[in-house]
Computed example of a mutant assay.
Amino acid sequence: MDVYLQDIMPSTLDLAGIDKPKYIEFNSLMKMARGKQKESPYSAIYGCYTKQQRMIRKDGFKLIAYPEAKKVLFYDLKKDPQEMNDLADEKEYQTKVKQLFIQLVKLQKEMDDELDLSGVYPELMQLSDIKHEWRYVQSGSIALNIDPDSINLSSNFLNLVGLTLDLTKGIARVIGSGKTQE
C-alpha cells in the first residue's frame, strides 16, 4: 500500500488522541493498521529531490525522471519489486510510461513544483502514437475519436492542458480553450 513517510506524524497524533491540525496534508495510518481501511488515501505517490529527480508511484508502477540526465526509468513493481529491470524503452509499456509521466506533471502542478519536466521530455507529452482524430464540431469545442485503450491517457493529457473530456452520446467532446490539433 502506497503511503508517505510524512504520514507518521498524523499517525502519532492519532495514537495520542490529538486531532490533526488542518494545515497537515498527510494522513494517519491508524485505520489501515487496524484493518478498517484497505486502500491508500492517495491516488499516487509523488517524490522529488532538488532538481535532480522526480518520481511517481501508482497502480503498481513507478516512473522516475532524471531531468538533468534526460533519463526516465520505469518499473513494474508487481513483477520487479527490487526495480532491477527498467522498462522505459520497451514498446509494450510506452502508453503506460506516458500516462504516468502526464500524471507526474499534473502532480508537480498540484505540489507547486516549478521544475518543468514537460519541456525536458516533450516526447512523453505527445499523443502521436495514440490513435486519435481531431475534428471541429462547433465554435469553442472539438470532437475527439479515441481508441478505447487510450482514453485514460487522452483524458489525463486534456485535463493537464486545461480541457475537459465529455463522453456523452457516444462521442468524446473536448471542452475548453486549450490548444487544438487537426
Score class of each variant (00 low, 15 high):
7 D>G: 07
132 H>L: 08
37 Q>N: 05
73 L>G: 01
160 L>P: 07
147 D>H: 14
19 D>I: 04
147 D>V: 09
109 K>G: 14
120 V>G: 09
2 D>Y: 02
98 K>N: 10
99 Q>Y: 00
146 I>K: 03
90 E>G: 01
85 N>M: 09
111 M>D: 06
44 A>Y: 09
58 K>Y: 03
78 K>A: 06
121 Y>A: 04
7 D>V: 09
49 Y>D: 07
53 Q>Y: 07
118 S>I: 02
40 S>R: 02
81 P>H: 07
38 K>S: 10
2 D>V: 05
25 E>C: 01
89 D>L: 10
34 R>V: 03
131 K>S: 13
70 K>I: 01
29 L>N: 10
28 S>R: 08
106 K>D: 12
86 D>L: 09
165 L>Y: 00
66 Y>E: 13
131 K>M: 02
156 N>Y: 12
108 Q>W: 02
72 V>G: 07
78 K>H: 04
23 Y>F: 03
104 L>P: 13
90 E>S: 12
59 D>T: 11
150 S>H: 14
142 I>P: 00
30 M>W: 05
66 Y>T: 05
49 Y>N: 15
167 L>M: 06
176 G>H: 13
90 E>H: 14
112 D>F: 07
96 K>D: 03
58 K>V: 01
72 V>T: 12
111 M>G: 03
123 E>R: 13
39 E>A: 04
60 G>L: 11
44 A>K: 12
129 D>K: 12
138 Q>T: 15
177 S>D: 14
142 I>N: 13
148 P>R: 07
104 L>C: 13
3 V>P: 02
168 T>L: 10
38 K>P: 02
118 S>N: 08
67 P>N: 14
160 L>S: 13
67 P>R: 09
91 K>N: 10
118 S>C: 09
17 G>H: 04
9 M>F: 04
30 M>F: 00
175 I>H: 06
108 Q>G: 15
100 L>M: 10
47 G>K: 10
141 S>N: 13
176 G>N: 04
145 N>K: 15
144 L>P: 12
37 Q>M: 12
140 G>M: 08
122 P>R: 13
153 L>E: 07
39 E>Y: 11
43 S>N: 06
66 Y>K: 10
133 E>Y: 14
95 T>A: 15
80 D>Q: 10
145 N>T: 11
68 E>C: 05
100 L>I: 00
123 E>T: 12
175 I>Y: 04
